[in-house]
Structure formats: C-alpha cells, structure tokens
Amino acid sequence: MPRIVVDVMPKPEILDPQGKAIVGALPRLGFTAFSGVRQGKRFELTVDGEVTEEILEQARNAAATMLSNPVIEDVVNVEVLDETASEDVAGAPEAV
C-alpha cells in the first residue's frame, strides 16, 4: 500500500524548546559534533490504491491546513513512499 510522507518542522525563526534541550544534553554524552538540533514531525498517510496527482494535491492541502500549524510550522516535504514498487522512493521529494 503506498504511503505519502509529510515532514513538518518548526519555522526557522520560531523557538524549538525540544531541540534546545536535546542539543544541551548531547555533549554531556560525548556527542560534541552537533551545534544545533531541531525536532520536527513525520506523518505517513496510507492510500488505498494508486497515488494520483489529485491525491497528492489533497495531501499537500492536508499538510498545509491540518497537519501543520502555519503560524509556527512549515511543511518541508511531501513525498510518495511506494514500498511495493521498489526500495527506491517513487516520486521525487517535493518542497512545499
């Protein structure tokens, strides 16, 4: 069954308290290479049948209106994952 993956991140100018706390904790465990962490969300929308352009458009709309809060978050990626086709990602990632 194909799935559409939606990635949502806090807007760059918005404070990300989670990322801030994690970046503070990393060096205490010896992970010193990372100067920043931002924590986002990944959604997987399962589709019964083929992903048409119309369905993908619906996913983009859902991502922009419901899965993300446009006041504080950006949808950074909407793409199709079709595990039945191959290991490869079907359809190039699209920035929204």
Binding site: P10, I14, L15, P17, A21, V71, I72
Partner: peptide, 10 residues
Amino acid sequence: PAVQVGDPFA
C-alpha cells in the same frame, strides 16, 4: 507577528 513560543522547562 511572529508568534512567541513558550519553553516551560526553561
């Protein structure tokens, strides 16, 4: 405006 985001832990 840019929304203020709170960090209660801080």
